[in-house]
Design a protein around this nucleic acid. Sequence first.
DNA 1: GTCTATATGTTGATAGAC
DNA 2: GTCTATCAACATATAGAC
Lengths: 208, 208
Amino acid sequence: MRPESRSMRDSILAAAVQLFAQYGYHAAPLRDIARIAGIQAASIYHHYPSKQALLVEIMETHMQRLNTSLEYILKETDDPLQRLHDAIANHIRLHTTYKAEFFIIDTEMRALEEEHRPYILGLRDKYEALLQELLLDGMERDVFRRSDVKIASYAMIAMCTEVATWFRPDGRLSVQQVITIYRQFITEGLLHTPEVVAHMPDGAGHLL
Amino acid sequence: MRPESRSMRDSILAAAVQLFAQYGYHAAPLRDIARIAGIQAASIYHHYPSKQALLVEIMETHMQRLNTSLEYILKETDDPLQRLHDAIANHIRLHTTYKAEFFIIDTEMRALEEEHRPYILGLRDKYEALLQELLLDGMERDVFRRSDVKIASYAMIAMCTEVATWFRPDGRLSVQQVITIYRQFITEGLLHTPEVVAHMPDGAGHLL
DNA sequence: GTCTATATGTTGATAGAC
DNA sequence: GTCTATCAACATATAGAC
């Protein structure tokens, strides 16, 4: 593919990302996507067969990016806590770097036509399975508390994904600060750790 | 308002809830909403001034329901941990009871026209402020670990809200079980708490 | 590769009879 | 309060010139 056509293909996709994230898939007219890309609406069909194809490509690319990176972490690292730390950092880094793309994945699943939904849902299920593998391994090796693996994975994914909704690069916290705060929340929770409380005159009764 | 008209008004709203949740606001045609309610599309305009009015009423009603219930908890309870437990249970109970309505609130904010968005966003901000008040009070009284209050509230809301996405009344877990699991995850995190492990002969992980 | 022109269908909303 | 009939606008997608 020649450079010029590749560049226009990317411009169209970038415009779609912007408008799908801003207004939603159905509320984003092809004409507006074309206008931002600098061409006429009809010209989009030289690069993509349909509006739906834009949505599928956005979701596919970034779900695969997420899966590939988590697979790499599981392959390269053995220690459960290190794996968890890396997985949290990886999830939040990708969701802040590709904020709009992951916001679309998070909110426009319903806009997928029946033909493509199973494939994209499969990629999402794959990510959940990888994270559940990480959590289960950590529980079996007594690093993590034994609890419901599915719920734990849902909770982690939900809280780390939502960062894409509110994070601003010029905001109060850096990506690294957000990662550090989420890591502590996920591993230790909101309460003081028991030994700290237990060493106090009273208050141990609040533990369980 | 007479019973018959009130009933049709409710039927229309119920149909809108179903289709907005299933297909999204923009992808749900008024004609389909009317068909489910058992009337013609034009007849909807006797009960509601616009499609947008349906969305606003759904969001307003349930955000107020959420706020009122959390305000009641803060008024009636003083102990920070009890307040947190009650807030988690309340959030999850409402999000499973009014699953479709809260799913709409969570995914269709972008579909609000400029005229109504500030009001609904204000209700959402109010809920966040109430939860942050609960968390800050608990930190100042040394029941909760001192951490970033805003992030903690975002994380809690995100994970408890997403229950509305996957929960099934006939699924593996009851609402009460889900509440119990989320409470432990939020208060204690994923890691073993050293103290508990130390005091138990073996298998502290078998607590549940 | 991009354009203009247009096909084809659907949408939210209105008018006015009953 | 509900209907039928219809409007005006907008959507995605296609045809064919350049």
